[in-house]
Design a protein around this nucleic acid. Structure first.
Length: 574
RNA sequence: GCAUCGAUGGUCUAGUGGCAUGACUUAGGCCUUCCAAGCCUAUAGCCCGGGUUCAAUUCCCGGUCGAUGCACCA
């Protein structure tokens, strides 16, 4: 068994040695919070992203878009990141510790500190002790530290830009185009996979907290009153552990239940959220996260964003970091679209026609301009506008125009009752957002796939990746480096490549060493060409996990390996 | 960001104010008929900047990165 304390070191060491993860730009000294994906890491990342695409694009039908990683200031004013994504900080003049100014105030029982302006906060905390050195702070400067990377766009104008702190906003700002693309109907979804940036104050957990990271996000736009997922039946009976807010408060454990139950019992807000909880569980297990080390935790009321109706985190257990939030699934209501409506002045709504236009009685107050004009002259327009939105009393309408209260008598307007046909309504959709941290998923897969075992008194290190995740899918070896075996092995390698399979030929060193090399990078299958191959064209296929081998006709190899990778056939069945 | 500790080939490591150890890995070769065997050969290293010194990988100062604690953390 592996000592849990050093599994992280072992994994990162292997990842570094074998080309999965490297510290970035090492020749100049690395920078914390940034990593390079090496050859095998890039391949593995792409495989995971493509599995994600299979779930969201192929299966759900939510197309992918790609937006810039730099956005103009307005986007992030609207999203709240310019204001809300910064911390009010100060530095203790005595011990030079950087501190959260609002936390100092709140820690001393001062309410509403998070809403205060910097100057106000500074004067409040001046008399308080530093939590680090306990000296009274005295006059301090409170400054905002924004977690967004700041830049300027173009020369001269110095227009402010930010590196995006999440991919989601690109989807919101494209809402009108997307709505038209999806032909003006709800629900529809759009996804984006790409880099996001957060200038973390002190990123220290390896690839768990990065300053540049990859997100895969889906934004699903639904009718606010229709949160039943049209394909809910797919996951209705899917059972998994849910760590609800209630269970957390009670100090209890997660409860295992089906999605159907979860929605019926009100544990999960609606079918959409439940559906993506199950889909996420399905996906994470499929890429190699162990189900025993995966849970879904609901946000407690105090950590739930004020606009969110429900939010769950998929948490992956790491023996080093504990439960790591890896995916967030939230019902964000109409918050984002409303925010961009307000900032941009554009309307972000869907016009939904009724099945049959509805007849409605409407009372309209129509001002009599012929009488209003001569009587009120310059104020006539303002009065007419006010009349249009008023409810007349028996004696007329009382209005306050330019500070003067006045009575508008019934002869100055006409009340018309009319029947109008309303063809439909405008609806601002609600947004269901599953948001995945790809890098954290990769770390989770690495940690959960890593195994050490003793074979013939030798330690064997093996990454038990699912075949679809493994960077190298199959290795091909000639048993001996002569007698025509290499030629046959190279032919088989070519046949595999022609079938779109990532195959690696290797004839260096003893056969056992070659198997071990592939075990360590998680290659699921290895084909060996031996002397029998010359006689009957059969080769051995070796399974990484069981180390068992079967002999098969070499002509069948490309199709067989394809099926093994796609998991339509399992090795045990051979 | 603060405090403590650390940094020597790809990896692990010995050691030093004056030619820098060894093992593993990797590459080439010999051998070898299925799970890191053996033999020969080769490649490759003192985190960065400044200072002290005739001479610094070694001592001093500053920085970077990493670990730990504090603080911070969609």
């Amino acid at each position: 068994m592996i000592a849990m304390s050093d599994i992280y070191e072992k994994i990162m060491d292997l990842a570094k040695r074998r080309g999965f993860i490297w510290p970035t730009s090492e020749c100049y000294g690395s920078v914390a919070g940034f990593i390079d994906y090496g050859p095998l890491g890039s391949m593995m990342k792409r495989n995971i992203e493509n599995i994600w695409r299979k779930f969201y694009i192929v299966s759900e039908g939510y197309y992918e878009i790609e937006c810039p990683t730099i956005g103009q200031e307005e986007i992030y004013v609207a999203s709240g990141h310019v204001k809300g994504f910064s911390d009010k900080m100060c530095q203790c003049p005595h011990c030079r510790e950087y501190l959260r100014a609002d936390h100092i105030a709140e820690g001393n029982g001062i309410a509403g500190a998070s809403a205060m302006k910097s100057e106000e906060l500074a004067s409040v905390i001046g008399t308080l002790p530093c939590p680090a050195c306990e000296e009274v702070l005295g006059p301090v400067e409170v400054f905002s530290f924004n977690l967004m990377f700041h830049t300027t766009i173009g020369p001269g104008s110095q227009r402010t830009g930010y590196l995006r702190p999440e991919t989601a906003q690109g989807i919101f700002t494209d809402f009108s185009r997307l709505l038209r693309f999806y032909r003006d109907r709800l629900p529809f979804g759009t996804v984006q996979i790409g880099k996001s940036y957060r200038n973390e104050i002190s990123p220290r957990q390896g690839m768990i907290r990065l300053r540049e990271f990859t997100q895969a996000e889906a934004e699903i736009f639904v009718h606010p009153d229709q949160k039943r997922h049209p394909r809910f039946h797919r996951y209705a009976d899917y059972e998994m552990p849910l760590f609800s807010a209630e269970q957390q408060r009670a100090g209890a454990s997660p409860l295992s239940m089906t999605m159907q139950e979860a929605v019926q019992r009100g544990v999960v807000a609606n079918e959409y959220v439940a559906y993506y909880l199950a889909l996420t569980h399905d996906l994470l297990v499929r890429i190699g996260i162990s189900a025993e080390r995966l849970r879904f935790r609901q946000h407690l009321p105090d950590e739930l964003a004020h606009y969110a109706e429900d939010c769950w985190d998929a948490e992956v257990f790491s023996s080093r970091f504990g439960w790591v939030e890896t995916v967030g699934i939230a019902d964000r209501t109409d918050y984002d679209l409303r925010a961009h409506e307000q900032q941009s002045g554009e309307r972000f709504a869907v016009f939904l026609p009724y099945e049959t236009p509805q007849r409605m009685n409407r009372v309209r107050v129509v001002p009599n301009m012929g009488a209003l004009g001569p009587r009120f002259r310059g104020s006539a327009k303002a009065i007419a506008d006010a009349i249009g939105t008023s409810l007349p009393g028996p004696d007329g309408i009382t209005l306050t125009i330019e500070g003067n209260e006045m009575l508008i008598t019934p002869d100055l307007y006409e009340v018309r009752e009319e029947v109008v046909e309303v063809p439909g309504e405008e609806v601002t959709p609600h947004v269901i957002e599953p948001s995945y941290g790809i890098d954290r998923m990769i770390y989770g897969v690495l940690e959960h796939s890593y195994h050490e075992e003793i074979v013939d008194d030798e330690e064997r290190r093996v990454l038990r990746f699912p075949p679809a995740v493994a960077p190298i899918q199959v290795a091909v070896f000639p048993l001996m480096n002569r007698d025509g075996l290499p030629e046959i092995a190279m032919e088989i390698t070519d046949a595999l490549k022609n079938r779109g399979i990532l195959a690696e030929y290797d004839d260096s060193g003893a056969i056992g060493r070659r198997y071990r090399r592939q075990d360590e990078v998680g290659t699921p299958f290895a084909i060996t060409v031996d002397y029998d191959t010359r006689e009957d064209r059969t080769v051995t296929v070796r399974d990484r996990d069981s180390m068992r081998q079967v002999r098969v006709d070499s002509a069948r190899i490309p199709d067989l390996i394809r099926s093994l990778i796609d998991q339509t056939v399992s090795f045990a069945e051979l």
